[in-house]
Simulated assay, not measured.
Amino acid sequence: MTGPASTQTPRYTLGDWDNKAAVRVKKNDYRLPDDLERQLATRDWFPPAFIPYIAHPLIDKAGRAVALRLAANHLVYFLDYTTMLEHQVVNRAVEIIVHGELAAAIPRPMKTAALQLYTDEGYHALFSNEVAEQIAALYDIRDRPRPRRIDRLLGVIEAASPADRPLAWFLLGFVSETIIAKELLAITRERLVSTVYQMLRNHLEDEARHSRYFCEVFQFLWAALPPTQRDRAARMLLEIIGLYFEPDLPWLMRSLSSGGFDEQSSLQIIAELRQPDAHARRVRCGAVSTFAAMTKASFFDNENNRQLFSQAGFIDG
């Protein structure tokens, strides 16, 4: 028997948002440190685990200055991508929840938390852009194309029927917010430029709460979907999860060229990323939290869903 409603753990909330959200309590100005040159002697622009090609012998041979430039390129690209993702994908997914566009009655606490999350994402876009602009100016990075993944994600919406588009928007947000990078969670102050470290930590602390929220909403929504829409959602999820782990190889080739590598050398450096099974390995490693949420919602109890993801190499058969 459960206790009084007031003593039960609240659902669909961001957990003491007023006292924990970065936009409410963090006062960082996100300016690059005055002792940046000294820090760069021993620290990185971005966690090496997220740019594994940086350890390639050809880059190592080129020297630390080249490695730092490539890492700066990658960080600016990542931050530009983050800014667009928060505005054009995640917050649009949140609007779907707030304004009741899904085929389910949305509980009031779920709407309130969604509005708080919307505010968080706007702040994440702001400080991501602030840091990106400083680093781009520092290295005179002018080649800042629109990340290919953004357009491919938005292509999922264009391909969906009008009736399925609200669900497609939600699924884009769900996958984005439940992909928690284990390597980023393990970053330490000593390894990264101080401003970048603080920015990533503040972002990740918010995202951990966002992930829990989207997991609960997914479980709620999946139970409410009719079987035919579940089947369409399963196929959309397969595509969306795959898209989140596809590298932007054309941009990467241009980045390596800016570091002085010709086409042949660049292809050697990114060879591992292009291996036939590399994509599935990235999905298996990076989508652990997403798959856990889907499992909790009984998504994989359906044999067709399990077979769909197994055939793609994303889960075991």
Score class of each variant (00 low, 15 high):
D34W: 12
N305H: 13
S265M: 13
W45G: 04
A72S: 12
E101T: 00
M199H: 13
N19L: 04
L40Y: 05
K20L: 15
T82W: 11
E216A: 09
V196I: 11
L249V: 14
S176H: 02
E272V: 10
A293S: 09
F127A: 12
N91K: 06
I187W: 05
A208S: 12
A125V: 05
L32A: 05
A181V: 11
D248V: 04
T83K: 13
T9A: 13
K27H: 12
L153R: 02
P162T: 05
R209D: 07
Y139R: 05
R254V: 02
P33C: 09
R24Q: 14
A55G: 00
D60L: 14
R209G: 01
R235K: 12
P33L: 07
Y139D: 09
Q307F: 11
L154G: 05
L102M: 06
L252M: 08
S265Q: 14
Y12Q: 09
R108S: 14
E207N: 03
R92L: 09
W17K: 07
L126P: 00
H56D: 11
M1L: 06
I150S: 06
G63R: 06
E207G: 03
Y244C: 02
A181P: 00
N304W: 07
L221I: 10
E37G: 04
S289A: 13
V196D: 02
F220D: 02
L225K: 09
H87L: 15
F214S: 10
F220T: 03
R92P: 00
G259C: 07
I179P: 01
Y118W: 15
G286Q: 07
G122I: 09
H210F: 06
L243V: 02
L256D: 07
D29Q: 11
S161Y: 04
F78E: 00
P4W: 13
R189M: 01
Q307Y: 02
A181E: 09
A105L: 10
N19Q: 11
